[in-house]
Design a protein around this nucleic acid. Structure first.
Lengths: 313, 313
DNA sequence: AGCAATCTGCAAAGACCATTGCAATTGCAC
DNA sequence: GTGCAATTGCAATGGTCTTTGCAGATTGCT
């Protein structure tokens, strides 16, 4: 099953992956360590992360020379509910270590190439490259604790209002739509009477998220300040060019928004919206699962889709 | 496993391997091809290889909008005993393609993070990483000639209609908003009477762009087919799981949309919208410059902005 | 329109997977 | 040597996954 690599390649791949995984796994090991057969299971996970990422507990047990129950108990000793929970986390980390290498390789190679497909020729291709750079920057800079803070605030909120005008409305719309899908009362507003009506009922226990890049709409600043004055928690998703907005917010998510053309790019903003909703969905999986199931039922009932995916179990 | 290199050293190993995955699956497709639901399963395997590598037949069935038995039969049509046999081979190839990318990255040893922000811990952080991977894939695969074709069609069109429903509406909204900023008559519509009204006036000389990922709304397919029947040029921005939509379009922009959570990610879709508008702005710089100047004037006149950026040079 | 071939969902059946209660084993302290 | 706590394997249990027979629907050909 683990074939095809030369010895040198295998060592390199597993060594790099193991560096990330080993620190993480060791950090989860109890103070007194793992003894006997459990230690053998742990060593197997470190030495064969690829197989561990997809093998069953029985298969791993066979490889480690232990009983399948020992694999379950090792996972529990490491703080997981059981083998599937540990395996999922291990898989994410293992794949991420591979993917990061791949992205870094592509980035590095593309900087060197000239005239090849994908290299910066047309404005559209340059735009994609700029977005890729922005997303890589966001990935390096973003503090995931801020994401957690915002997600937990939204989860606990009576109601969340997202203020986004102009083209940024797309970010607000996407964030609100998927947050509702995740089971939370989140709405996006832009301008005019819609914003006035929304602000009239904002108060303590609510959350307001202001989304703005480059052009800062007057009503967005007013809304943020007003919400804060009324006791709501205020967060901002913005680029660095909005100190007035940052002043009103308890946390700010800084988003690269520089576009190749005149107007800003929303790609990193949407990625932040996606990350926020993913984090939100993880706050209360049962609630989100129920909301999704309800939405599936509505989709089926209204016959809106060209095809009908089976509802989740 | 990994085919021989071409003369052009500029091509990445991982790109070759990824193309290998598609080439390998297509080569196993029966001579008469796969039809109907099986084709949708195949496209899903191609568009979401990571999830296909680890997901059950039931999960893949749900994503593809088919019955679990159809996944089994698709695997059998491709020459495998059943889903586990196909999955095992697909996973090996997929992981090898990632591993090859990582091997290529060994020249740059700087990527090394342990517990740093951005490492795969929280769901939000994993979402960002997944989007980065998707954008890298898009960057490799996208044919900039397709971008040019669509941009020139929109520039020449009497009117452009963008059809996007659900959360994809954010992509349509962003595309339409910035295309109008660039000086072209582009509007986004979603559903209901708005769509009916827009379709009533679509004809020769117009352009319709359908945006859809994963869940394909019935009215989006109907609109695309109707627009094509009325002589409009039809383009699609979609992931690979929409053969019905692709059938109606003269060009298709394939967008990775696999999200970390249940719902698709719009990040790559927004990046495509951004690239399209950037390309559009370059078709007739004078026209776009004039449109932007007019918009600036409107912004100033209406006093909508908190601050007034200098006009572009 | 009729018919045959193909497709696809349903549901049953069997295999597989993971957890846990229980009991036997092992290691350590006294 | 003994007692006790921790470890570990066995097997039952419940759940999940995959395949396949069957029937209805769909498609293509004449």
């Amino acid at each position: 099953m683990i074939g095809g690599f030369g010895a040198g390649e295998r060592e390199l791949v597993s060594e790099r992956a193991t560096d990330d995984l080993e620190g993480w796994l060791r950090s989860r090991t109890p103070e007194r360590g793992l003894r006997g057969k459990s230690a053998a299971v742990l060593e197997l996970l470190l030495s064969q992360p690829r197989r561990a990422s997809y093998g069953s507990a029985g298969e791993l047990a066979q490889l480690a020379g232990v009983n399948v129950a020992t694999v379950t108990r090792t996972a529990q000793a490491l703080g997981f509910a059981g083998w599937p929970a540990l395996q999922q986390e291990l898989r994410a980390r293992y794949l991420s270590s591979l993917s990061a290498g791949q992205v870094a390789a592509e980035h590095d190679a593309e900087h060197r190439s000239t005239g090849a497909p994908g290299s910066p020729g047309s404005p559209g291709a340059r735009s994609l490259r700029r977005d890729l750079d922005g997303l890589a920057l966001l990935n390096r800079r973003l503090d995931e604790r801020v994401l957690s803070t915002i997600a937990e605030a939204v989860a606990a909120a009576r109601r969340t209002t997202i203020v986004a005008d102009g083209s940024y409305a797309a970010v607000g719309l996407a964030l609100a739509h998927n947050a509702r899908l995740a089971g939370y009362p989140v709405h996006a507003v832009t301008a005019g009477s819609e914003l006035v009506n929304a602000m009239a009922s904002v108060g303590e226990g609510d959350v307001l998220i202001a989304v703005s890049f480059w052009r800062l709409y007057e009503n967005t600043v007013l809304a943020a300040n007003e919400a804060r004055a009324r006791g709501a928690r205020v967060f901002a998703v913005t680029d660095a060019a909005s100190p007035a907005l940052a002043a009103a917010a308890e946390e700010v998510v800084l988003v690269p928004a520089e576009g190749e053309a005149f107007f800003p790019s929303l790609t990193a903003g949407i990625a932040v919206a996606q990350a926020l909703v993913t984090q939100l969905a993880a706050v209360d999986p049962a609630r989100t699962g129920a909301a999704i199931e309800a939405a599936e039922s509505m989709w089926t009932r209204f016959g809106l889709l060209h095809r009908h995916p089976a509802p989740p179990r």
